[in-house]
Design a protein around this nucleic acid. Structure first.
Lengths: 331, 331
DNA sequence: GTGAAAGCGCTAACAT
DNA sequence: ATGTTAGCGCTTTCAC
């Protein structure tokens, strides 16, 4: 594979000049620069990234570690990050931690080893691995979930408030026994959504009951089981707040199997406005989160921190929007 | 940041010994190895990836360039690739080419520059950029779509046959004027699905009509417009074959807006068994592609090629499965 | 404006 | 079994 020396030899200049020419430094004679570019093209020269990064002590790459590639919420964030990063010449590598602390840890190690310029991640809960980034001075920002005792930049959604509003909406629609199916304990968004749900019940002077709450992984399968379970008990809920769109799939399956009609028999609001939400029957009421915007904001914060590591950490909280559709309106 | 020399100094050995110990070479005294590991831990030593890769002339990383991160088909492939790659100690970086030849090209350049061990990609159609990989001897395998005049490893689905079977199923159900909404011309899967659709019509001695065919990008918005258009004409189709699940969303929206009931008024089969397909009313008949398996097979082929660049290229064709649900049964 | 030369951190010959 | 040393390809002072 052609190296910078090959290009230098062909162009009849030094390697230093090649480097300067190819990196667009102003201090190089236009004629020479042209000759260098021609030589580089001729040889199909591609700079050796590891060598460059070794020398520069940093790569123009940001790592984005998300907890579930198959969740549209996170892929939308990814797009936001990409769009901003590409604008300023950074590449984005996507890593899928799969909601596993050990995978997250592994990817953080890789990010450090590869000396990426920065890391954006949706932390799995344990803070330990992120400390390494802080210790090394690698820029990072958390999305979707804050980092316990770590004052970093973070981009969140006011998910507790959103959950409260969604629950209040169900109450206003006349549902009496509202249940909640949320994610695993310790995952901040799952905890917050549950808290918001309870806020609404309390404000309406309703007594909550643990029998109406189920916690499970943020996946269809878990939610399916949870929904079957909660609906099979003696006093089943007549409405459900569901904490993400994958879970909504599982819950709707369960309703279908049990012959329960959403909206009429059991009201339902789910987090995340999946593309299909308006297509099911009845259309699914959702809490739409600004996922793409989370990505763009996080990327901008990261870039700012890369250039200036001393700026004070900020917390950005974006709002979510309740979209009322048929599944939360008593027919 | 601690370097290998720091570790060597602390452990009272040479850098070579540190390198050997940390890389698990057999030829190092167990006591020394332990001392080295302790020193490394103490310093929080993380090897410098660029330096290592520069020296080794290769990184234990494979790049996966997919054409749409928001398409569940491709994210399922990503999981397959990851699972296999991680087993053998490779990391996977995901790149989103967004169905754009220039982005694909850019990511290929980056992959080359970073000297990744191999590349898996769903090519956008133009072959040009992939030539660079071949020219440099970087291992790569194509998924979902073959590479024109490039004999590489490739993992495909027999999508033409699947399209034919889906169309035959619609014919068998008594639909008379079957239309097809497929992806852009030049994208192989889009062309193949159209060809399979025509195969079925021809075999049934039906005359196809270009007025029943629409081509658009593989996204909901394009398909939405296409469906409105095709259904508004004088002799509208009474059934539709739709080329992926994002498009199915757009088509179902259009049907909803026009008050057309899927199944009863217009039959429908779509590619890709999205999680929500069984939840819409009526449940959507689909062609289920073995996406995860495409990923695992591709990863295994890539690893084999990384170890032995001379093995003859293979083509693996996996089958798809028609899942009949309500949307293709006349009520 | 251009070239010579040092050195980023690591691994692999080679020497012992 | 361990240490010494060269060098991977690049960027960047430092001279000129």
């Amino acid at each position: 594979m052609a190296t910078i020396s090959d290009v230098a030899a062909l162009a009849g200049v030094s390697t230093a000049t090649v480097s300067r020419a190819l990196n667009g430094k102003a201090t190089v004679d236009p004629d020479l620069a042209a000759r260098v570019r021609t030589a580089a093209d001729e040889l199909g020269y591609q700079p050796n990234g590891p060598a460059r990064n070794l020398r520069r002590q940093e790569a123009a790459v940001v790592a984005l570690i998300i907890s579930d590639v198959e969740n549209p919420f996170f892929t939308a964030i990814a797009r936001g990050v990409e769009d901003v990063a590409h604008e300023v010449g950074y590449s984005v590598v996507l890593c899928n931690s799969d909601e596993s602390a050990s995978k997250e840890n592994r990817y953080i190690d890789i990010a450090i080893q590869e000396r990426v310029a920065g890391v954006i991640l949706s932390p799995t809960g344990t803070t330990s691995s992120v400390d390494k980034l802080a210790a090394r001075g690698t820029a990072f920002v958390a999305v979707d979930r804050p980092l316990p005792q770590q004052d970093s930049d973070v981009v969140l959604v006011d998910t507790r408030l959103a959950a409260r509003q969604a629950t209040e909406h169900l109450i206003a629609q006349g549902y009496q026994r509202i249940g909640c199916i949320t994610g695993p304990s310790g995952v901040r968004t799952a905890d917050d959504r549950l808290a918001g749900y309870r806020d609404a019940l309390k404000a309406a002077k309703r007594r909550g009951s643990t029998k109406l709450v189920r916690r499970t992984e943020y996946k269809a399968a878990g939610a399916h089981k949870a929904a079957r379970d909660v609906l099979s008990q003696e006093d089943p809920p007549d409405a459900l707040l569901v904490a993400n769109s994958a879970m909504a799939v599982g819950v709707l399956q369960a309703l279908q199997e049990k012959g329960i009609r959403p909206g009429k028999d059991v009201g339902m609001v789910a987090f995340d406005d999946a593309p299909w939400a308006a297509l099911v029957d009845p259309p699914l009421s959702v809490v739409a989160q600004p996922a793409y915007e989370i990505g763009t904001v996080a990327a901008r914060l990261l870039l700012a921190r890369i250039t200036d590591g001393t700026r004070p950490p900020t917390t950005t909280t974006l709002g979510a929007r309740l979209i009322e559709r048929g599944s939360s309106h008593r027919g």
